[in-house]
Amino acid sequence: MPLLEVENLKVSYGDFQAVNGVSLTLDEGQTISIIGANGAGKSTLLNAISGIHGQKTGTVRFAGKDITRHRADRIARAGMTMVPEGRRLFGSLSVEENLLIGASAGRAGQWTTGAIYELFPILGELRHAVANSLSGGQQQMVAIGRALMTNPRVLLCDELSLGLAPTIINDIYRCFGAIRSTGVSIVVIEQNVTQAVAAAGYAYCLLEGQVSLEGPTDMLAMDDITAAYFGTEKTE
């Protein structure tokens, strides 16, 4: 049984159908990525799965339970949380306070502030700094740490690379190995195709709210991805 199962999910903002019938599955311990251009519906899809966006039809099943109608806080306490797009730290709180907020989910596990400081040593040094004063890369680390502090079974990551320099993006993605080794299953959303394909074993490509291509990352040809990404005919 998959850990996360999304079936025919449709999400709309008023008259605009942002996600139009997406289905995907995530197995325990697996990492999948969802790629697509700006406006393809990636973030909306993740917001709907995490419960932040309530206007949706279809089914979301997590650990065998239908959670389609559950609120985001309940879903987080059940073990699925998200690193939101743009990091969205609690700006007036310190680094450590941001991490401790993650512990509010009340889920025991191996992710403690100590474990986060081991994963991102720089955060240990900056633990008393106000979150707003950090650089983009450091803020992203705090955002990931805060999500991990809920000790999730599924971690949804929305555009971790957004607005960050390439070397910093590599640093951020390097932590995935350590996160995976603790048994966390991951869904990554990326515009950056190379990064997304490298990070995951299975990928979905979204185009105008629908899955235009899917498959194991080692079986997907770059040409096919490009065509599915932009919605163009394959160049021969």
Binding site: A72, A76, T81, E97, N98, I101
Partner: peptide, 24 residues
Amino acid sequence: SRMGRIIRATADDHQVAQLSGINY
């Protein structure tokens, strides 16, 4: 206090607070 911290976080961004299991 722990509750004070939760209240401050909720004031900063109540939507994201939900992702940490907080019922705002």
